[in-house]
Nucleic acid binder design. Structure first.
Lengths: 151, 151
DNA sequence: AATATTAGTCAGTAAAGCTGACCTTAAAGC
DNA sequence: GCTTTAAGGTCAGCTTTACTGACTAATATT
């Protein structure tokens, strides 16, 4: 037996370690939104929706953030548009482009989601301890910035 | 102005903070596998594949881990089976069930994936520092255990 | 002015993912 | 034991997601 280099990595690779809590949170938040009556939504739509910025976002921008093609993003936006979650407005600076902005129904559903995320946040903060949880978030931000993708 | 409770949470919620590095890793690993010649694979298949244990796993078990229905899991397994990545073997203990096990081609592709994950691991460890990276992994494991899902 | 790039849609197709119905075997209740 | 309930899995049918390729219109570049 030799001295261990570091901590036991456990059975999971980093990808899985990130995936498990991520997917659990997503599932809970989506369930909360559905339970609140927003049943005409889907997970892929929600994934895109949460990346829309306050000033409105471009289709291409959203596609890149969610790791899908712009064509797929366009379809998702159209569905959400039909259901009153978002709107397309012409971009004042670029006549080719349009900006996707959250509409009333979208904002309302977003509040439900935010509330559930806050609940989970509290749970996780309690489980890890406040300092450790904050550190975790900071470290994840560092990793997020490592990707050379616009965020 | 009041004293801050803790660190600036940044623009992203925890879900997003987990998603961004997760999805980036997944993308890189998948690209590596494709580049190595395993072009008859898809991301959903790969997500399921990596959850197959050495002794073989049940369809239902895999479905639960990946957050999909058993029907969908069955379809993914059938595709991978056709392409030689996995096999179904009857479960000796339960005549209803079968166990999915990795086949030759699957094991080979798995090695390519593992190598790429190791590369990313090194990068991330370097970016955060060894101690901090290990701590991150430990904390993620704690969160993973919080979900009351079989893992 | 010509050319290349970017934003986005349209069309077509394959894969993923769901619900519901069903069969078979195992477990639980009596 | 026998009956009932639950669990593992597939089949069928359908919608959504997601891709590639082709195209239009507008902006940038040279």
């Amino acid at each position: 037996m030799q001295g261990e280099k570091s901590t036991d990595p456990g059975p999971f690779n980093v990808g899985l370690l990130l995936f498990i809590p991520y997917r659990e949170l997503e599932e809970r938040v989506f369930a909360a939104v559905q339970d609140a009556g927003y049943t005409d939504t889907t997970l892929p739509q929600a994934r895109l929706f949460q990346r829309i910025s306050a000033e409105g976002s471009r289709i291409t921008e959203l596609a890149s953030r969610v790791y899908i093609t712009k064509q797929t993003a366009s379809v998702l936006v159209s569905s959400m548009e039909r259901n009153g979650y978002v709107r397309r407005v012409p971009d004042p600076l670029d006549a080719r482009a349009s900006r996707v902005i959250a509409d009333e129904r979208g904002l309302a559903a977003g509040k439900v989601a935010a509330a559930e995320i806050q609940r989970i946040d509290r749970e996780w903060r309690q489980a890890l301890g406040s300092a450790r949880y904050d550190r975790l978030r900071r470290d994840l931000q560092v990793l997020a910035r490592l990707t050379n993708r616009p965020q």
